[in-house]
Amino acid sequence: MTRRMEFHVPQHEKRGFEAAGVDRRDLLRGLVAGAGLTLASGVTLYAVGGVAEARAPGDPVSPEVRWGMLIDVNKCPDGCKACVTACSKENGWAETGSSLTDAQWIRKVEVTDPRTKTSRALPVMCQHCAEPPCVDVCPTGASFKRDDGIVLVDKHTCIGCRYCMMACPYNARSFIHEPLSDQKPHAPRGKGTVESCTLCVHRVDEGRSPACVEACHADGGGAMLFGDLNDPDSEISKRIAEYATQQIRGDLGTDPGVHYQNL
């Protein structure tokens, strides 16, 4: 409560500052920008301005929202793995050195043009497709898309058949090959089920940004932007409207929620 007072967020605000309507958001933008004076550059507005409406903990997610991400490849330095490290820490998966069986919710992919030998590196994770092939093929419906566009695995109904991994064009999913213990309380994961990036759904439900986005701004190049693709006033929608962006394998028509700029 005292923290709220520090930020002068009204008492009736249910979901924290960024879950506010436009007016409140503007107010907060000012507040955070003010706070930003004491910060390094490039760390301010990213968490703000994406959320279309407030949602109480008891309210279901809304189909009015579609969460997405915009990654500016120009700002993604070669060799930087801030997003990968943050995701691993946040969600409790680790690279053990066996790259083929390790969980890799997010990875840096190096793309080289064979003609010019120019090369870029970019993070690739679950692309949270609007038409996700993994959801189509899942026999039990364990793979599903939340109303707000986040593609998840309901591990309670996942039988571990791995058909979704066959169907995913992005190599985004991992199968848990070994027994686990001491998982993160907010990121349950266990042997014999399939998993992938959850877009940090536990944070998004609290009105926060995914861990990778936060880390990218704090320790990386500030390449990642998270927000509501359905809200024309959100930062992400404006940038997608303004700049040419790409989706990986856009030709497949899966309409990923993750967009890339300067790819």
């Binding site: 959801v135 189509d136 093929v137 899942c138 026999p139 039990t140 419906g141 364990a142 109904t157 996942c158 039988i159 571990g160 058949c161 791995r162 058909y163 199968f175 848990i176 042997k191 014999g192 089920t193 399939v194």
Partner: peptide
């Protein structure tokens, strides 16, 4: 070979009819 063969009952009771796998069951 399933990751969770103990959940066979789930496969037999929960269906996603868009999946050819579910149809195959």
């Amino acid at each position: 070979d399933l990751g969770r063969p103990d959940r066979l009952i789930v496969a037999m009771t929960t269906y996603n009819f868009k999946s050819i796998f579910a149809w195959n069951i």
